[in-house]
């Protein structure tokens, strides 16, 4: 295996081992996402009928909020014993460390989404099973785009005193196109007359954002992490 991929795999596996052992970030994030969906369901579902297109919006806003929480907690863990510095000291390509952290966050968020999506389907009567592959692809590409920017900023802010405020302030404006593409693509699938073509068009846009965000993050990670 090339060294770049080996390092990314090592970092991702380490993050998952730590998470499986503590389950701290997973439980917190799932609980937060579920609470978010429940609160919106109480507000937006009247007499068993949800507002039009609410399900897609609620699903993506819950993913974004839960994702921000997961990013903050994951990097807080690296800050605690300054282990991010230990990773930066390793004689490896620093972008490989970024990719490892990114994969760990993406996998964690996909687990959260596996709980979130059926709940949205149940509470908002969203037809989540009508186009499962297209819906899953939208979620995967959207999660990658959101996490690509989030991982970069969370790593960059790990030693900043105001990191909890700065992360959402920096992250949301930049990831708005990803959230919009995710919401519009999912809404096209949840429509009473679903349009797979429209969903695929939004998915293509998500893939484009992923390529741009991941490339820019790989390019800027090394200089941004050199203090």
């Amino acid at each position: 295996m090339p060294m770049f991929l080996k390092v990314a795999w090592l970092v991702m596996r380490k993050d998952l081992t730590v998470e499986v052992r503590s389950r701290e970030v997973l439980y917190t994030t799932v609980f937060f996402a579920v609470a978010c969906v429940l609160v919106f369901a109480f507000a937006l579902v009247k007499e068993g009928r949800p507002l039009d297109d609410a399900a897609a919006g609620i699903m993506w806003i819950s993913v974004a909020f839960a994702g921000t929480l997961a990013l903050g907690r994951t990097f807080e863990r690296e800050r605690h014993s300054e282990t991010l510095r230990a990773l930066m000291l390793a004689p490896t390509s620093r972008p490989a460390i970024y990719v490892g952290k990114l994969l760990g966050i993406v996998l964690l968020l996909l687990v959260v989404e596996a709980v979130l999506v059926p709940l949205v389907g149940l509470l908002f009567h969203a037809p989540i099973a009508s186009q499962p592959l297209t819906l899953a692809s939208l979620l995967v590409f959207g999660t990658i785009g959101f996490s690509a920017v989030g991982t970069l900023f969370a790593a960059m802010l790990v030693r900043a005193r105001s990191r909890d405020v700065m992360l959402p302030v920096l992250l949301y404006p930049i990831t708005i196109p990803v959230i919009i593409a995710g919401v519009r693509g999912t809404a096209a699938l949840f429509d009473p007359e679903p349009s797979v073509d429209l969903a695929q068009m939004w998915m293509a846009l998500l893939v484009f954002f992923d390529i741009v965000f991941v490339t820019l993050s790989l390019w800027t990670f090394e200089p941004l992490m050199t203090e």
């Binding site: 380490k14 081992t17 730590v18 503590s22 605690h80 014993s81 300054e82 282990t83 510095r85």
Partner: peptide, 10 residues
Amino acid sequence: AHDLHLYPEL
């Protein structure tokens, strides 16, 4: 380092 650079969960 003073912070030891170890993962407490591992």
